[in-house]
């Protein structure tokens, strides 16, 4: 049997509702961990008032641009979506890039859907309101966002490889230096795109905030204690080693992840430490990223269905329908209508 497991915020509520996750509140030291959690981490790790997991890493969604092509096109990083669209069209027209933008649009829980969630939230929209009613109808912000997004594919401004790109693979593809922009993605991808040994354009990929007030989304992955564990004391030690403090009282794993993989942490004390402000420097500007960090909201505010057991099959449908819209098989309107219809189907179970 497995003692400790990790989970994305999308699967975690599901695991909890299936009874696979052991609450941690009563365990020695749990209170201190809880007190140090960031707000975003709390929203994942605390469920029904109980501490259910310790943070593995946190991230926020940021934009990237490639300095060489931006210089060649003489562009400043965009401020609004209209400006962005104009830049993309001009770059294509002037043959600065065949496909000026690369999106993270590969199938996944937070890849293709994440891009849509992020841009919808940035424009002031959500997917469900507080009462649980969907916000995908005609004229809704999510729908308009999708229409705008589809246009970048229709006009062949977006790289077709986007539809296969997960976070890491898109960072690598962007590192090849063929596009001006990369759409919203996990901030730590800079670690890959700017790795001297891996990327031919290391150092030329810069981070950029989102349009308007710059609001974005973020999330936290967690480690949890499996309820099936035979030796709870041992499992708690392992869990703390992975997601908490080591014997010397340091957040060793979180510090290492920040330094080596540019990951953020779900602990306030780590986020304020030099592990971040110095550790991230080889790949990006920590000050700038932390500014974006302050404008991030936990993704469940945008898509509260994350807490529902049907969110998983529903995101399968989102992936399918939005892919079809992006590849021009159906319109953005039909796509949203299908996704609305799918809510009822998946709720039936």
């Amino acid at each position: 049997m497995i003692d400790v497991s990790q989970s994305s915020p999308f699967s975690f509520p599901n695991f909890i509702s299936q009874g696979l996750v052991e609450p941690l509140d009563e365990l020695p030291g749990a209170k201190e961990y809880l007190a140090d959690l960031t707000d975003s981490a709390k929203q994942v790790a605390v469920y029904d008032g109980k501490l259910m997991g310790l943070p593995y890493f946190s991230t926020v969604w940021v934009w990237n641009y490639f300095t060489d092509l931006m210089d060649k096109a003489k562009f400043e990083p965009f401020g609004t979506y209209d400006e962005l669209m104009e830049q993309l069209r001009k770059a294509k027209q002037d043959k600065v890039a065949e496909y000026p933008i690369f999106w993270v649009a590969g199938v996944g829980l937070e890849q293709l859907p994440g891009t849509w969630y992020q841009m919808t939230w940035n424009r002031g929209g959500v997917f469900f309101d507080k009462q649980g009613a969907h916000q995908l109808g005609t004229g809704s912000i999510a729908r308009e966002t999708l229409k705008w997004w589809v246009r970048t594919f229709k006009e062949e401004l977006a790289d077709p490889e986007s539809l296969k790109a997960q976070f890491t693979s898109s960072a690598k593809a962007f590192g090849a230096g063929k596009n001006l922009y990369r759409g919203p993605n996990h901030h730590y991808d800079l670690n890959i795109a700017n790795d001297q040994a891996q990327s031919p354009n290391a150092g030329k990929i810069k981070v950029h905030g989102s349009s308007g007030d710059g609001r974005t989304i973020g999330d936290t992955h967690v480690y949890f204690l499996c309820s099936a564990t035979r030796d709870k004391a041992w499992a708690w030690k392992l869990l703390q080693y992975l997601g908490g403090k080591t014997k010397d009282g340091q957040y060793t794993q979180a510090n290492n992840l920040a330094r080596d993989a540019m990951l953020g942490s779900g602990y306030n004390s780590v986020m304020k430490s030099t592990a971040i402000t110095e550790g991230w420097k080889p790949w990006g500007d920590p000050v700038k990223i932390l500014e974006i960090w302050d404008k991030a909201t936990y993704v469940a505010e945008v898509v509260p269905s994350i807490y529902k057991p049907w969110h998983f099959p529903w995101s399968d449908r989102i992936n399918i329908e939005v892919s079809k819209a992006l590849t021009g098989q159906i319109t953005a309107d039909a796509c949203c209508d299908n996704i609305i219809a799918a809510i009822k189907e998946v709720q039936k179970g």
Binding site: L163, K164, S323
Partner: peptide, 18 residues
Amino acid sequence: TQGGPGDATWVASWYSYK
């Protein structure tokens, strides 16, 4: 393809597996 793009390559065994 993992079934994609969209549902273009969803086949029966992939459906059962998913």
